[in-house]
Design a protein around this nucleic acid. Sequence first.
DNA 1: CGTTGTGTTGAGCCGAATCAACCCCGGTGG
DNA 2: CCACCGGGGTTGATTCGGCTCAACACAACG
Lengths: 262, 262
Amino acid sequence: MTFASNTALSPAARPLAREGLRLAPLARKLSALRALSPQERAWLGMVDLSRERFTPGELIQSEQRPLERPYLILTGWAARQRVLPDGRRQILSFLLPGDTAGIRRGPAPIVPTSVAALTGVEIADASFLRSFAASADNENLADALSIAQAVEEAQMLDHLVRLGRQTALERTAHLLMELHGRLSAAGLSNGWEFPLPLTQEILADALGLSVVHTNRTLQQLRRQNLIESRNGHVTIREPEELARIGAYQRPRLARAPVNGEG
Amino acid sequence: MTFASNTALSPAARPLAREGLRLAPLARKLSALRALSPQERAWLGMVDLSRERFTPGELIQSEQRPLERPYLILTGWAARQRVLPDGRRQILSFLLPGDTAGIRRGPAPIVPTSVAALTGVEIADASFLRSFAASADNENLADALSIAQAVEEAQMLDHLVRLGRQTALERTAHLLMELHGRLSAAGLSNGWEFPLPLTQEILADALGLSVVHTNRTLQQLRRQNLIESRNGHVTIREPEELARIGAYQRPRLARAPVNGEG
DNA sequence: CGTTGTGTTGAGCCGAATCAACCCCGGTGG
DNA sequence: CCACCGGGGTTGATTCGGCTCAACACAACG
């Protein structure tokens, strides 16, 4: 598996079919945060995945039935969300392949949110990660997981700024940059092109906008040749400009060996 | 609308003056989350507090100089915030007496935010909490800290919903309810009256509104007799109604000894 | 085929921002 | 003592970004 040079442009971008490759997004993501030892990578390859499937719209966890075990997204997109009494919905974060939920918590008092599958979603029990991280052997892995946690928090804060202080155009630009960054880290982008299997309604609920205005904002980005989108895929044409508009900054971590990805 | 089994309503609500009482907000807050053993409470009373003071506007931590040690707010209000290149500011969360920052992180890769003192602020090195929690003796304390962490995350999510999907009136109502809840838990409220030492500009930066509109929203709440405010203190006149408007729900935790249905 | 979900477009409205005064009050210094 | 000043709160007028309502286009699908 590619582990050092993160040149996602290699022609090896084949559909992931083989069993062992289901963990590729996680492995990539963590490797980018902290170099893993060969043994640690081996661990990740040997895991027996008890998978579970969800169809679009299905709830992976809900406020009534919180999660029992930590889990890992293998394929598909999900969203952590909260719904107001009158039906308004706010998406709190997107869960992409390689993302986990519930790893960190020991005495697990959990916040009332639900997680909905946005596309078809395949998850795996991620208890193994918790135990791996606990072992003294896998120091890098534990570090990587803890960094991943911090990155997740940083994304949350970005989201707050988007919703609180940015215009529709800025929000959208920023979110697209973030999603590209995350998908790239998981090896799921192709240069500046990446899958965006979301309806505009979902996007709107994430961006805190109406569907109509989300539509118009996307059109504006397209009209200005900043992005291109068709068929559930987006290509960022002008990364610099899009980042400028959204005031987007790649995750900068204090102690971590940040990988400069162009 | 009585809070959890919070014995805080006793008439012993005297101004905190004596030295040892600086930890009262923390002790109260944690006790509400998980009953502490006498020994644990004793620990909290014996701590040697190396204090540090900040004046309003001063930065307790910044993006350039992240925090070195975890700290605890003893007195005063602070805000975690992020500032956009053009000066727009979003307040990410308020730090009240008894709140901590940086406790949980071991390999400390920290997210780029700054924390500013809003009033005069007194903080203490909170390393002791980290070590206490690590000791096997103080299981309840560790639990309480971890629950506090979850509550903090829940507040973040509430904040996202406020900014993304609520109107100015709803946001304001919700925030006031939250602040009252938190201050009450720390023993810093007097029934439904509590201190709110914030300018409307600060409030605006938290609510994602303009100063002018924040002003008008507060007036509306006052005109409708939902709240009363003067001199840096707020009284919630109609808790039920205010909670309804803001769709506010008291923190409900999964495993905590709280019987959620109120 | 109709149906349903998603994207698109136009018209009109409204919540909130902006701009610009003005007030009040507590310094502060002449 | 008073004139001045600056920060914070308040108000009115106006603008504008984004919402709502209402169609319509189009593809996937039964």
